[in-house]
Design a protein around this nucleic acid. Structure first.
Lengths: 121, 121
DNA sequence: CGGGATCCAGGGCGATACTG
DNA sequence: CAGTATCGCCCTGGATCCCG
């Protein structure tokens, strides 16, 4: 099942995978990544695309993704201020494993929901 | 990049992928899944394997994974109480996309760290 | 237009004590 | 051994106001 990974004696929060999850597994990061996966977008466009995100949190999320090299911020013009966000080449490579998770979800989501409904009764 | 997925007009928290992330993307769930990916384990063993998890949160996490059909709880004996946790068949299928994320991390983690260090200066 | 600063509520998580 | 119960902290995220 985890053939490629030798079994550790102890599992720790410091493992890289967990640190990556810390980056992308907050409430909005993956959605932002998906949103930018199709093409670059301006700040306002992202905010309109993503239902319910506040601008504080959107900015926070973009900064965090930029900080970790997944997203690139480009200033298009100063007056009026215009900023474009896009995935970096590193960010683009991350889409693939995320898509793998999305595919799993498409295939198995109903089982998860069914199990949850059953459990709650 | 997202060839298999048509571009939505708006991106929402209700999308299945995001709901799955809500399940597995807390502080400990993925670590617990990894821990059980190698084999079934008893409660105490899991707690010893996973460095720093409190028993309240471990129980919480296991219940949540069980609720969503990813983990199975089996009572081995009543006196003394002995419980074994294992991945369900559904849970096992989830390991694959997680492993894909782990592989990505192995390959690109240093880039993320480098970008972060640079950004922080 | 693209943010920054501030205030606030809720939830995640840890520590501790107790139980069948 | 495998939990439950309680308390309390901190951090995420939402709302609002302000700025170049």
């Amino acid at each position: 099942m985890l053939n490629n990974f030798p079994e550790p004696e102890i599992f720790t929060l410091d493992c890289p995978t967990q640190q990556i999850l810390d980056v992308i597994a907050d409430k909005w990061s993956v959605i932002v990544l998906y949103c930018l996966a199709y093409r670059s977008r301006r700040y306002g466009e992202i905010q309109r695309c993503i239902q319910g995100i506040s601008q504080k949190v959107l900015t926070q999320t973009l900064r965090k993704l930029e900080r970790h090299g997944l997203v690139e911020r480009t200033i298009l013009s100063q007056m009026p201020l215009s900023v474009e966000y896009s995935l970096t080449s590193l960010g683009k490579t991350l889409i693939e494993p995320l898509q793998s998770l999305a595919s799993w979800t498409r295939e198995h989501f109903y089982e998860v929901v069914a199990s949850r409904d059953l459990y709650d009764r």
